[in-house]
Simulated scan of single mutants.
Amino acid sequence: MDIYKEYNKFIKKFAIVIALSLSLILSYAYLISVIENVDFFTALYFSVITITTTGYGDFTPKTFLGRALTIIYLTFGIGIVMYLFSLITEFIVEGKLKELIRVKRMENLIKSLKDHYIVCGYGKLGRVIVYKLLREGVKVVVIEKDEEKIREALEKYKNFIYIIGDARKDIILKKANIEKAKCLIAALSEDADNVFVTLTAKELNKNILVVAKADEYEAIKKLKAAGADRVVSPYLIGGLRMAELSLRSGLLDFLHTFIKVASDEFDEDVDVKKIKVEEGSELAYKTLSQSQIRKKTGLTVLGVKRGDEIYINPEPTFLIKPGDIIYAFGPRGCFVLLEKKAKGKEGRE
């Protein structure tokens, strides 16, 4: 349950018991002042020390009616006072007061944040996202409805910043200081919820970067229409990755997965290919710098495979030899020129 709901519930109970206690104390004091024929202050003093069971003995009812009234007063009064103290003790002992103080401090901390990231949903995907962001030193505010998930995170991270609530609601996103946030990641379980969060986020901060998760392929277009800057489909990426692994076993095969996603989801005209340098190629026995591959073709060399050796991000001084396999990345239309340069003299003619 939300700590504020617990607090409001406690305050309501506390107010009712206090009002009942005051009414009982004042009513008894008035009746005693009349029955025992004493001034009201003396009667009030006796009423207070009686209900708190202090009992100094400096004043006692002399009449039968006064004593009978006191018995009734003690029967109900002590029960009310004990309940009052039990409420206070329960609130403190169960840690609700401590939790309330901690939540207030966290809210003040969130208000001071700027250019932070908001992650909506701390499920399986949300956990991975938060782990990566925290490793990168990014300030993250997590919004999650399930308190159990938050408790798990608190055991794992010392300075975990969170808000328990529904990320679809304006008030919750405002608590996360969305107006000053740099990025919002919508990682809720339902696509419809991520669409709603995206719409709300862009309404509250039109400049915020929104990265949203989509399970269904149809949701990708809806999220983009809602204002999402980037849409990620874990099932699409995972499926393509597994297919690529089963089809390709060479260097940087995993890049094909992400290139495919970039092409299908974002219409990016990019690809990654491996090209073999043949004997007699104009690239053979030249360094990367001398070959001017990037300048002449617009492609970036990601790696070179020579026999069983793999050279990732080779230096400009790396010498290209016949038989080398170049892994290049860039616009699809640029590969034709590099393939031509990699061929031998007969292949170029």
Rank of each mutant, 00 (worst) to 15 (best):
V140Y: 00
K124R: 15
K145F: 03
N207H: 14
G239R: 10
L236E: 11
L223Y: 00
S189H: 09
V211A: 11
T257H: 03
R135W: 00
A181G: 09
A225M: 12
A187E: 04
C183I: 06
E203R: 15
R127I: 10
D193E: 15
Y235Q: 15
T257E: 04
R168Y: 05
K156T: 13
L188A: 13
L245F: 14
D253Y: 15
T257A: 06
V197C: 02
V231K: 01
K156F: 06
T200I: 14
I150K: 01
E147T: 09
I178L: 13
Y131G: 00
V211S: 07
L252H: 12
N207F: 10
K182Y: 11
K132T: 07
A262I: 04
V232H: 02
F160C: 03
K222F: 09
R127Q: 14
N205H: 03
E179K: 15
E216Y: 08
A228F: 04
G165Q: 02
F196L: 15
S263Y: 09
L134C: 03
K149C: 01
G250F: 07
A181N: 08
K224Q: 09
G227W: 01
I150D: 02
K169F: 02
K169D: 09
L251T: 13
I208D: 12
E218L: 13
E152N: 11
